[in-house]
Nucleic acid binder design. Structure first.
Lengths: 233, 233
DNA sequence: GTCGCGTTATGACAGGCGTCATACCGCCGG
DNA sequence: CCGGCGGTATGACGCCTGTCATAACGCGAC
């Protein structure tokens, strides 16, 4: 049983916040909550996009795979964040896979009610457009970083982004609210586990970051920023 | 004097196609057409987003620069394609620069009328969302390619994308409808001019592509596809 | 208990590709 | 007509970083 009813959860998010109460209740009636253990896939690249999803609890990883089998992590999503939306509205298959990073529950809403709702309430499209604009910008940030920066700078900047966006304050620094393996970090930066491990280990030895049982704590955002700029320490 | 009145141009594009004629005329009345010579900037990253733009003729390059001065080309836009839109709607500064690749004319629409129009006609937001979804997908394609593929495969896949999307058929192959320098291609793939020159020269010697006075012709799309997959030839 | 898996760690090695230098060609402007 | 600029071409060199191998540790499954 979720900590709060589905309707309240839908209303609390940014996506459906502006909808009238009756619409929210109608959505909640057709929504389905489901829980996934770590490493389970919610859907895979190429699957038919039958559901629109929202992260309820936990952490979901959006990724694509290449023939050679190595993964590229495109986005990390936390509670309240939607995914699969564009594919649903366009009626295309999902362009990427979604995988639970830790035990997570997600809310799924079937395609038909969402499409009908979007037709009735154009403000949904507006919210969608703004959100996509933001995500396009961060995607472009990634492109720029991958295209020009050396590995250590890329690792620094994704860690900065995560810490600033999702970190909670603590006497020791900014604490990331989820476990982030070196492998996942590597997949977000287009590098390998080994180099990521080498870099993070060096940072830990220098006290720039702290590894607390798999959870990273950014102790010196400033040093990371310097690394981001100069490409090394 | 442009080849057709501004109003007709606006109506012909995908963005405003569904609007009533009176709205189109109102837009055309406040729109401004302007011509830029090659290498001139229409706006720069960080500028206040006072205008929403459409490419009328020519070719516009969306790019970002790093401190070290090297550029990253995020998108190449041709006639009918909009740019600067998200920044205008959100009231943020432009997140990237726009530069004319060749002599180009663009149509600019001031911020206020666009914002008002979007409020009156929610379908605009819908069009916007769909367009952003497509662009997000191609951005994610770039991320994946930059993160996992070797340089030669990246060059192959951007050339394939350009040829399939914008190439015109010809007995010799798919002809790109604009001059594309090795430098620009390098900036699109996150590599350097030198390596791009080496790779393209090799391709030209093998007959995979043809350089016709700066315009590239893709003679064997299949070979390029094989290179895209295997990472070399 | 112990086998296996996921994760972190460290070293050796090779090679793709960036960097620097140089050269050539066509074009435009003074 | 000639100097500068933008673009293409080619070689030498080096290093960042991917690849492969090996090891240790914690933990859940059986």
């Amino acid at each position: 049983m979720p900590p709060q009813p589905t309707a309240d959860f839908l209303k609390a998010g940014t996506v459906f916040a502006a909808l009238p109460a009756t619409e929210i209740l109608a959505l909640a009636a057709v929504a389905r909550e489901q829980s996934y253990p770590a490493r389970d896939f919610i859907f895979r690249e190429g699957d038919e996009s039958a559901w629109f999803w929202l992260v309820r609890t936990g952490r979901v990883k959006i990724l694509r795979q290449s023939r050679s089998g190595d993964e590229v992590v495109l986005e990390l999503l936390g509670p309240g964040e939607p995914f699969g939306g564009v594919a649903v509205l366009e009626g295309r298959p999902y362009p990427a896979s979604a995988q639970a990073m830790e035990t997570s529950t997600v809310v799924g809403i079937p395609r038909a009610p969402i499409v009908a709702l979007a037709a009735r309430h154009p403000m949904l499209a507006r919210e969608m457009a703004l959100m996509l604009g933001r995500r396009l910008r961060t995607a472009h940030d990634s492109v720029k970083s991958l295209a020009t920066d050396p590995v250590e700078a890329r690792l620094a900047s994704t860690l900065i982004r995560l810490a600033e966006g999702e970190g909670t304050h603590d006497p020791r620094g900014l604490v990331l609210p989820f476990r982030l393996t070196r492998q996942t970090l590597a997949d977000m930066c287009g590098t390998t586990v080994e180099t990521t491990i080498r870099v993070i280990s060096r940072w830990i030895r220098k006290g720039i970051v702290i590894d607390e049982d798999g959870r990273l704590i950014v102790a010196s955002l400033e040093t990371l920023r310097e690394i981001e700029d100069t490409g090394s320490l």
